[in-house]
């Protein structure tokens, strides 16, 4: 029996139930692929929902992260808003988890780091084929892009790192099972991939 199901069973027998563990998730400069891989736990999601509840997440309509036991962040830091959200997560979450290549080392979006930002914006918004009215978007509503894409741990303290692009659902499931059961997370090395 998997650890979460085991917990579930004991939760059913023991009354009153343990309060649910509150989890927040977000994607900064990522592609949502890590969130997809999390959803790839498939029907185990239903069992997980017996133990956890979601705060801010792309799955809920909660817009600002409140106090949580666990915060999970995919994507690196590419603009001023990312910095703000990351710091809010760090303040609100007891345990902060960087998930996936982008959160850990900037990932593919960090490929832009060797190019000057002005050149990038110039080329994408003024010199593409089929572009009639070019111009670099600069409205105050748009968050300022940073010169470079940064990994999370350059900005805040990160408690756990789960590598992979994305990490497999098995790795994510094992990690959460361990964490929820109060064990030190330990994945089988054979399941850890960096691609």
């Amino acid at each position: 029996m998997n650890p979460i199901a085991a917990d579930l069973k004991s939760a059913d027998m023991d009354t009153p139930r343990k309060p649910k563990v509150r989890i927040a998730t977000t994607s900064l400069a990522g592609c949502f692929g890590c969130h997809m891989s999390f959803l790839d736990i498939d029907e185990r999601l239903v069992a997980l929902l017996e133990l956890v509840e979601f705060d801010r997440s792309p799955l809920t309509d909660i817009k600002v992260c409140g106090p949580c036991e666990i915060g999970i962040i995919e994507g690196g830091v590419c603009n001023a808003e990312n910095v703000h959200v990351l710091r809010t997560f760090r303040e609100q979450c007891t345990t902060l988890v960087a998930i996936g290549a982008c959160a850990i080392n900037g990932g593919l979006p960090a490929q832009r780091n060797h190019l000057p930002l002005a050149t990038l914006l110039q080329e994408v918004y003024t010199t593409r084929p089929g572009l009639a009215h070019g111009g670099i978007p600069n409205d105050p509503e748009l968050p300022l892009p940073l010169h470079k894409v940064h990994p999370l741990h350059e900005v805040v303290k990160v408690d756990y790192f789960i590598p992979g692009c994305p990490p497999s659902a098995e790795v994510i499931w094992t990690f959460l099972s361990d964490l929820l059961a109060g064990r030190a997370p330990a994945s089988d090395r054979r399941t850890i991939h960096f691609d």
Binding site: L28, C31, P143
Partner: peptide, 10 residues
Amino acid sequence: SCATHALGKM
């Protein structure tokens, strides 16, 4: 895809 959250002007 990506990007994030802020209230008020940056």
